[in-house]
Design a protein around this nucleic acid. Structure first.
Length: 331
DNA sequence: CATCAGGGCCCTG
DNA sequence: CAGGGCCCTGAT
């Protein structure tokens, strides 16, 4: 694999709408890490496969929750035209949810008995997703019907072959391949990376994106249900993956209409203090309690749990791979 | 050793 | 519209 050095840079200062919690937003401890990004307190690195180029980005927190401010440095191989720079900045504003206003959410639920401690811990956590829609779908596919360990292996194997190694800010990362590049690979070749039946899905998704049958920008303009219908047309993407897209990629704060099977036990515990509650009951409860903010509310509970596991120096990997243990742990 | 289920989805009857 | 099968891996 060739390595690309990104030496040319430009920087910009961005001011998100308050409240904005830099660390809690750009980094979600519940997500499994992919080598296209890295978080350290106050800093976040990420590689974009953007338009026809590969861009490195470093964000640095230079403010606080009530007066948020960040410096963003973009690295590229050659200097970028102004229109690309503009698009990049707009993309960052979208992906890291800089301009939405969630103050109503905090006002409304400040004395909510379930949320109160997490709203304090994670105040200003918006919904970020560093991936493009296509990249996020790759994550969804490797997660399906697999343990986190295996998912990590699959994504690493794919990046090794189809990704690009990039270096910027004295660090090494991988950048995702583009759909057009994967279209050229045979299903068998992809299958050799031990992704199993998913090879066919990767192939079909790459084709759909290469043919521009789906358009991320357009999806952003749609209401939740229309967007869902569009996403569900994709092969290999069902109700759970589609819902994740609606929340993480498209930032619909109410995108909780089905209960993922593995999350059911955990929500049963977090919301009801019980081992197992039927999904209809979970849905009814959540809709009634948090309405249009329901997924943002659950996101706060969920991430708060994982921050706790992380700061207590617990083996996160182990806990994700064994759901029983998470449930046991959060009592 | 064999068996099984895992952060679903597609396809079939 | 319910249920079997799917790739592979690590746990039992």
């Amino acid at each position: 694999m060739n390595m690309i050095n990104l030496n040319i840079s430009f920087s910009i200062t961005l001011r998100p709408t308050a409240p904005y919690n830099f660390d809690a937003t750009v980094y979600n401890p519940s997500h499994f890490p992919t080598p296209d990004s890295k978080w350290e307190k106050g800093s976040f690195w990420h590689t974009f496969s953007f338009e026809s180029s590969i861009i490195g980005m470093k964000m640095e927190n230079d403010g606080n929750i009530e007066r948020p401010k960040m410096n963003v440095i973009f690295y590229s191989r050659s200097s970028l035209p102004e229109n690309i720079k503009d698009k990049l900045v707009k993309e960052v504003i979208w992906r890291y949810d800089l301009k939405s206003d969630i103050s109503e959410f905090y006002r409304k639920f400040q004395s909510d008995e379930l949320l109160e401690p997490t709203l304090y811990n994670l105040r200003g956590m918006k919904v970020s997703c560093e991936y493009s829609l296509y990249e996020f779908l790759m994550i969804m596919i490797v997660l399906q019907n697999a343990t986190v360990k295996r998912s990590t292996q699959m994504i690493q194997a794919l990046l090794n072959i189809y990704g690009t190694k990039v270096m910027f800010d004295d660090r090494e990362f991988y950048a995702f391949w583009k759909p057009k590049e994967l279209v050229l690979a045979s299903e068998e070749e992809i299958r050799n990376l031990k992704v199993g039946y998913r090879a066919k899905i990767f192939k079909k998704l790459a084709e759909a994106f290469a043919k521009e049958e789906i358009n991320e920008q357009y999806l952003r303009s749609l209401d939740k249900e229309t967007a869902r219908r569009e996403i569900l047309k994709l092969y290999g993407i069902g109700p759970i993956s589609a819902q994740n897209v609606l929340f993480e990629v498209l930032h619909h704060y109410d995108a909780f209409d089905v209960v993922p099977r593995f999350e059911q036990k955990i929500y049963s515990k977090l919301l009801f203090g019980k081992d197992f509650v039927p999904s209809e009951e979970i849905l009814r409860f959540v809709v009634k309690k948090w309405g249009k903010w329901r997924m943002l509310a659950l996101h706060h509970l969920w991430e708060d749990l994982f921050w706790k596991l992380k700061t207590k120096n617990v083996e996160i990997e182990k806990f994700i791979n064994n759901k029983e243990e998470i449930v046991w742990r959060i009592k």
